[in-house]
Design a protein around this nucleic acid. Structure first.
Lengths: 197, 197
DNA sequence: TGCGATATGTTGTCTTGTCAACATCAATAT
DNA sequence: ATATTGATGTTGACAAGACAACATATCGCA
């Protein structure tokens, strides 16, 4: 669904956006006119803001109603999606430090929500899966999450949802591309750092 | 620009989105087929993921190059936009706890980036402004932020940017509406908890 | 005049995620 | 066969933000 983009021979001038799109100019109390990011026109500002508020609200709700945090919820989704996933796979997929994933799994294990499979061939990693209790909790929270989502996107058409997802996906691709370069031009041939788009 | 939405007598069926839009069904190792959130089609998942990765990358860059965190950067933008802002106004505007704002300002003050104005009429709050050093740092980081933003939205047209911002704004409005209700129907007459959309 | 209510900021404590260091097992090379 | 290397997970220390409790100054009202 994201359009194919030819990688190399694209004139960056052609599609680059003018900075003024994102800026506002304020009259300082002194004489100077200062420019800075517009809150309403900078996607990154809105993105950060929206994710912060959404995550905080979700965290509070899940915590007080089911005793799990957003991290736990993400792992429930992850393990529903990829039963038998390892710490590393989960960490890369949901984009959170493996230490946090490891601790999260221990927490969920103590609660009897996940079960660890046999040690993998490499002798170190092991797959994790949801227990029946875990599946039940997942289903419960999922219903609530969908209900919330329904309200949060009230007034959006399915086409708009698809457009939004497409844009966010493109944004993530650009982010991956940006992070792949700066360190030292190019090093890793094909680091599959992307989540699972 | 977001369309006026009449609050009460709207049939929720009419614009509600089908849950299937956001779901995937996985074949469990057992016999059961479990549904969960699709990573690629759930805007909230993508939103959280994008904001996490973007924020972390930005944090690392700002920290190592200029010795300030994302929180500090947000306050630099805030004070450029609203010179003389108080702790409470900043907290509400950027949607972060006032305690964090208070500590952030102390930090920036120690670094000589902000200066506190006279105590307000209420005897407790005081306006904060950027020093020349603060303005200089803001300008430096702004240039870098714009450069990053240019890469992150490579391939986006100005119309697409506007569409994205509009959707995120609508999402935030829905979020505010959702948080205004659930506690106990309606209690506070007009809590202006909204940032400044 | 004085007492309580309200607003605002600060401080304490907790949770959570990150970074860095470490431990452990298999595979590989010598 | 043994030592080295690489991959993976775990642990510890730290930073950041959230929430709640507290401090303090002004204002309203009796």
């Amino acid at each position: 669904m994201p359009d194919q983009k030819d990688l190399e021979p694209r004139r960056s001038q052609e599609t680059d956006l003018p900075d003024e799109l994102f800026l506002v100019t304020m009259e300082d109390d002194d004489q100077a006119a200062r420019s800075t990011l517009s809150f309403s026109r900078s996607p990154t500002v809105l993105l950060t803001f929206a994710a912060n508020r959404f995550g905080r609200a979700a965290s509070r709700i899940y915590q007080e109603r089911y005793g799990v945090g957003v991290m736990d919820w993400r792992m429930l989704v992850m393990l529903t999606r990829e039963p038998g996933a390892t710490v590393t796979l989960s960490s890369e997929t949901i984009g959170i430090d493996k230490a946090a994933v490891s601790r999260c799994l221990q927490r969920l294990h103590e609660k009897g929500l996940v079960s660890q499979g046999p040690v993998h061939a490499n002798g170190r990693s092991r797959g994790w899966s949801l227990t029946e209790k875990g599946h039940a909790l997942h289903a419960t929270i999922l219903a609530e999450a969908l209900e919330r989502q329904r309200h949060l996107f009230a007034g959006f058409s399915p086409e708009e949802i698809a457009t939004l997802c497409g844009m966010l996906t493109r944004f993530l691709e650009n982010l991956s591309a940006l992070q792949a370069k700066p360190p030292e031009e190019i090093k890793a041939p094909a680091t599959s750092q992307e989540p699972t788009p």
